[in-house]
């Protein structure tokens, strides 16, 4: 089966004065058409770098793709030059960032910014573009679209701006939207609105969404499949139910445990993951989570675990799933709660 987007063993490094930071150390995942893949992880785990690599926006000359392939509809994006990236970015992959202000031009009318994309990529006339823009603004839930058309970004609230950015991303009917923390800067009531909007648009247009987030609540709301990243590798991936109900990696257990349960009425102590993520300046040779893991074995410190496959979609990289690992079911059950 071919996927819309397939990232295969992607390695990206940044060179700074004091050495090399290995931001991605062999990342593999795929996005099927019409589905939402959530890429989850903490700051520095490489989730944003992955998005940058797909969009050809890794800051050079410090950063560069060292190895691996990014196949989008069968084409390898890592071989693309700047011009090819530009055409893909505008028309086939849409982008939504955390801070809507970085993707909007503050000195340009909101409508003109969407027009511009349409005129450039779809070769529409000015008049047609304006009509389409107003339709798009309505689509993303901006009331009074025709008068909003000629306002500037600063006249919009944070949530409204993010809607405009989504409208720009949708302008050319892209097959894939990459949304990097699209709701992190927004208030919870506005976040709910934007998530609803994304869900609705996906249903109507069958767009694929690669949603990058740190918020498991957002994942539980919208994702079909999940890839959990840690220290530059995907440690576990699977369908959203598999990840929440039958997680196979201690890091996933830790993430799920460290969020308070709204549903429970008792006041339970939170179970944090002790310590901090490793510095990718000098990544550990074994499992990157070994230092913080409650179940570390000697093998974890020495060797990177391979992929253990549990179902068609569900796989994890953890030595605990190896048949040779001692069956300390009790401990694991306690860790998983």
């Amino acid at each position: 089966m071919s996927h819309l987007l397939e990232v295969d063993d992607l390695k990206v490094s940044f060179h700074v004065s004091s050495g090399e930071i290995q931001a991605l150390r062999g990342v593999s995942f795929h996005v099927n058409s019409g589905e939402t893949l959530a890429v989850v992880g903490e700051s520095g785990c490489g989730k944003s770098v992955t998005a940058q690599a797909i969009m050809g926006m890794i800051p050079s000359p410090q950063g560069r793709v060292k190895e691996g392939r990014i196949l989008f509809k069968g084409q390898d994006l890592t071989k693309f030059n700047k011009k090819q990236f530009r055409s893909v970015r505008g028309s086939e992959i849409g982008m939504v960032f955390q801070d809507p202000m970085t993707s909007l031009n503050p000195t340009m009318k909101v409508g003109s910014q969407i027009d511009e994309v349409l005129v450039k990529n779809q070769k529409l006339s000015k008049k047609e573009a304006k009509q389409k823009t107003i339709e798009l603004l309505k689509l993303v839930g901006i009331s009074d679209a025709s008068s909003r058309y000629s306002q500037y970004p600063h006249e919009f609230s944070g949530g409204m701006r993010q809607r405009v950015v989504i409208a720009i991303a949708l302008a050319c009917n892209p097959e894939l939207i990459i949304a990097d923390e699209p709701t992190t800067a927004l208030d919870v009531t506005i976040q709910a609105q934007i998530l609803e909007l994304l869900k609705k648009l996906q249903k109507e247009r069958n767009t694929s969404i690669m949603l990058i987030t740190h918020d498991l609540g957002v994942v539980a709301e919208v994702a079909d499949r999940v890839a959990i990243m840690y220290a530059g590798v995907v440690v576990e991936s699977g369908r959203v139910e598999e990840i929440f109900e039958n997680p196979k990696h201690p890091y996933t257990w830790g993430l799920l445990n460290s969020v308070p349960k709204l549903e429970s009425s008792e006041k339970e102590r939170l179970i944090p993951i002790e310590g901090s993520p490793p510095d990718l300046f000098a990544p550990p040779k074994g499992c990157p989570f070994a230092e913080r893991c409650p179940f570390t074995m000697e093998v974890c410190l020495e060797h990177m675990p391979g992929k253990e496959v549990f179902s068609e979609n569900h796989q994890a990289r953890c030595w605990l799933n190896d048949p040779r690992a001692p069956k300390n079911e009790e401990l694991i059950a306690a860790g998983r709660e």
């Binding site: 009331s143 609230s157 949530g159 409204m160 919870v188 009531t189 506005i190 976040q191 709910a192 609105q193 998530l195 609803e196 918020d215 498991l216 609540g217 957002v218 994942v219 539980a220 709301e221 994702a223 959203v240 139910e241 929440f244 109900e245 969020v259 349960k261 709204l262 549903e263």
Partner: peptide, 26 residues
């Protein structure tokens, strides 16, 4: 409205929370 906007904590609870969508912005 604020409480209804909190995301669910598990995917199986998806859609169980009745959302009160506030119109407009503050």
């Amino acid at each position: 409205a604020l409480l209804s906007a909190i995301p669910v904590t598990e995917p199986k609870l998806r859609g169980t929370r009745e959302r009160i969508m506030l119109s407009g912005d503050p």
